[in-house]
């Protein structure tokens, strides 16, 4: 017995390719970002932004560096998922769409690695 609908069988277009994974991870990262961003903005703006030593000393502490790295990874992930939907909606044509999606993924990945690396430099050197 097939579980496919008669219409689905006739159209023969298969599944959309993935299920609820994208939608769900967008929510998971959104929920995680609520406390992470609230903490970061309030904590950051309580410190002297113009002072190199002050900023370095603050961001390099273990209990600041770790949540900051969590924030960076979650932010990059959430951002990539969101930009993906925007590209899928507004860029037409398979080639152009794929190229933009690739670019977005590379930029997000590179930015996340650079930001995490920077925090590790502050914490470990």
């Amino acid at each position: 017995m097939s579980l496919r609908t008669p219409l689905g069988k006739v159209l023969g277009r298969g599944s959309a390719g993935d299920g609820v994974g994208h939608w769900w991870m967008q929510r998971v990262t959104a929920i995680a970002l609520v406390p992470l961003t609230l903490w970061f903005v309030i904590a950051l703006l309580g410190h002297p932004l113009q002072s190199y030593d002050g900023m370095r000393g603050w961001l390099g502490q273990p209990w600041v560096a770790v949540p900051t790295i969590l924030l960076i990874v979650t932010l990059a992930w959430h951002s990539r998922l969101g930009v993906q939907v925007v590209i899928e909606d507004y860029v037409h044509g398979k080639g152009a769409k794929t190229a933009w999606l690739l670019l977005s993924t590379f930029v997000h990945f590179a930015a996340a690695v650079a930001a995490v690396f920077a925090v590790l430099v502050l914490a470990l050197t």
Partner: peptide
């Protein structure tokens, strides 16, 4: 923000 962190590092 990433660029700012890289500058700090």
């Amino acid at each position: 923000f990433t660029w700012w962190l890289m500058a700090l590092a």
